[in-house]
Deep mutational scan, measured.
Amino acid sequence: MQRVNMIMAESPGLITICLLGYLLSAECTVFLDHENANKILNRPKRYNSGKLEEFVQGNLERECMEEKCSFEEAREVFENTERTTEFWKQYVDGDQCESNPCLNGGSCKDDINSYECWCPFGFEGKNCELDVTCNIKNGRCEQFCKNSADNKVVCSCTEGYRLAENQKSCEPAVPFPCGRVSVSQTSKLTRAETVFPDVDYVNSTEAETILDNITQSTQSFNDFTRVVGGEDAKPGQFPWQVVLNGKVDAFCGGSIVNEKWIVTAAHCVETGVKITVVAGEHNIEETEHTEQKRNVIRIIPHHNYNAAINKYNHDIALLELDEPLVLNSYVTPICIADKEYTNIFLKFGSGYVSGWGRVFHKGRSALVLQYLRVPLVDRATCLRSTKFTIYNNMFCAGFHEGGRDSCQGDSGGPHVTEVEGTSFLTGIISWGEECAMKGKYGIYTKVSRYVNWIKEKTKLT
């Protein structure tokens, strides 16, 4: 034993070699072989497995989906700052455009905790909710729209109204504003409101030439003092309507412009014939205590009207009353817009006519005020429907199939267009061939041609 100890002390290297040989010859039971080890760690190889990531292109799944990435790591994937920024906006807080917040056709661009709407022409605001041009839906104005110097929408209202708090709607500024039905039992019968379409306001006024200088022999019209197929109006439903009495009662109609003036057809009036105007009328054979009678003290036909040349060209006249009318729910003026808007309103496509005229061709006159909704007829169809001249200051309205029309005794009465609950004068009943005849239409004086003249002559002093 002493000898062994001496050998170990003198030859430590020998001992180490012996131990190493023993270990190498022993069977290893701690580690699995290569094949079995792979069965336990069965993990798919990654895209760049075996390579240094710093030297390969980034992978979106590896960089940002398996674990949260930084902007720089995302930049490695896209290799483009702009594309990385677009991805980053949604990656950080989701897609803010998912709810489609942009209105009126706006395009949404996502941002971090926010979004941006790219608005089409005519709109602005956070969600493109603000109209900035009158060309689109009248700028959301209830009545009139004008573009300011910086191309912003400025709404306005006709006389007797003021802008509401929203700067879009119009509200009454006087007790009985024009064009409004205020009798409670008839307010439910107000005709369907007309909503502004998209309009090209630059070209809204037709490029028409008034044929002022045409000389033409007097034409022989049949029954051209021209509501057939209409309905009984309720008291106060058309408070701007008046009836004219002269040699015979209810020979023509008219509309209240203001307390002192009536507008009617020029062919209705004769110099030297006494005319009485009755406002607030409903049943011409009954006294309903809503009527107001006034005498006409002055007749002003349009300066281009000449019955000797043509009885229905420039067929418009103004009547001055001896005493002002007292405005109330049964006696209310009709609204008159400017030339541009009167023309736009007419193009809405349908209007209402009213009167006490004959209820059928050569038949009896109506006792109760009649009204009828009539569609506008395109000019080409209008011209083809008659052998008589249709001037540019006239328009056609009615039904091709016949059966409904204005008729004798309705002449001078109103053709009105309702705009968001307020009625505007767009025409004056003038003439036609018979009444409600198939293929024939009622012919009306186009008020847009005469609004400046009306307003100039009827100013209240």
Results as ranks from 00 to 15, higher is better:
240 W>A: 01
251 F>T: 07
350 S>C: 06
318 L>W: 00
442 G>N: 14
152 K>S: 13
240 W>H: 02
147 N>Q: 15
312 Y>C: 04
345 F>W: 06
154 V>L: 13
388 F>Y: 13
24 L>K: 04
153 V>D: 04
388 F>R: 09
393 N>I: 02
198 D>H: 11
32 L>C: 06
234 K>E: 14
285 E>H: 11
370 Q>M: 05
399 F>Y: 15
72 E>M: 06
359 V>L: 11
440 K>T: 15
9 A>F: 14
157 C>L: 01
435 C>I: 03
365 S>R: 14
46 R>W: 01
145 C>H: 02
361 H>A: 08
138 N>R: 09
289 H>T: 14
361 H>N: 15
78 F>W: 06
173 A>Y: 10
406 S>N: 14
427 G>N: 01
186 T>Y: 11
440 K>H: 15
232 D>A: 13
151 N>I: 09
47 Y>D: 08
370 Q>N: 08
14 L>M: 12
66 E>S: 05
103 L>V: 10
233 A>R: 05
65 M>R: 08
301 P>L: 12
124 E>Y: 11
299 I>K: 08
15 I>A: 10
120 P>Q: 14
324 P>T: 04
123 F>E: 04
368 V>E: 09
23 L>Y: 12
388 F>A: 06
238 F>Q: 04
387 K>M: 07
185 Q>P: 09
43 R>S: 02
310 N>S: 15
401 E>T: 12
321 L>F: 00
251 F>N: 07
299 I>Y: 09
188 K>L: 09
420 E>Q: 09
354 S>Y: 08
93 D>S: 15
275 I>C: 04
120 P>H: 08
442 G>S: 11
111 D>I: 11
194 T>C: 05
329 S>N: 15
163 L>I: 10
230 G>N: 13
304 N>Q: 14
131 D>T: 13
239 P>K: 01
59 N>H: 05
69 C>R: 00
367 L>A: 13
150 D>G: 11
125 G>D: 03
167 Q>G: 07
294 R>F: 01
25 S>C: 14
110 D>M: 10
127 N>H: 15
336 I>D: 00
431 W>M: 14
38 N>S: 14
100 N>D: 11
250 A>F: 08
5 N>L: 14
112 I>F: 14
27 E>A: 13
130 L>H: 13
217 S>G: 06
282 H>Y: 13
257 V>F: 02
299 I>M: 11
19 L>T: 09
122 G>R: 06
136 I>K: 12
411 S>M: 15
259 E>W: 03
243 V>C: 05
422 T>L: 05
255 S>Y: 01
159 E>S: 10
442 G>C: 15
281 E>A: 12
10 E>P: 13
234 K>Q: 08
103 L>M: 14
306 N>R: 09
402 G>F: 15
336 I>T: 03
90 Q>D: 12
286 E>C: 06
36 N>R: 11
396 C>H: 02
100 N>Q: 13
257 V>R: 00
304 N>F: 11
243 V>T: 10
134 C>D: 03
124 E>S: 11
164 A>W: 04
255 S>F: 01
252 C>N: 01
69 C>F: 01
453 W>L: 00
327 L>G: 02
326 V>T: 11
108 C>N: 02
323 E>M: 11
289 H>Y: 06
420 E>G: 12
243 V>E: 03
262 I>C: 04
328 N>E: 02
368 V>G: 10
452 N>A: 12
319 L>G: 03
120 P>C: 04
398 G>T: 04
24 L>C: 13
429 I>D: 08
393 N>H: 09
165 E>W: 08
193 E>R: 07
52 L>C: 04
288 E>I: 06
436 A>V: 07
155 C>F: 00
31 F>P: 03
289 H>N: 15
417 T>S: 08
302 H>Y: 07
410 D>Y: 10
119 C>M: 02
314 H>Y: 08
66 E>R: 05
149 A>H: 10
393 N>V: 03
386 T>I: 09
108 C>G: 02
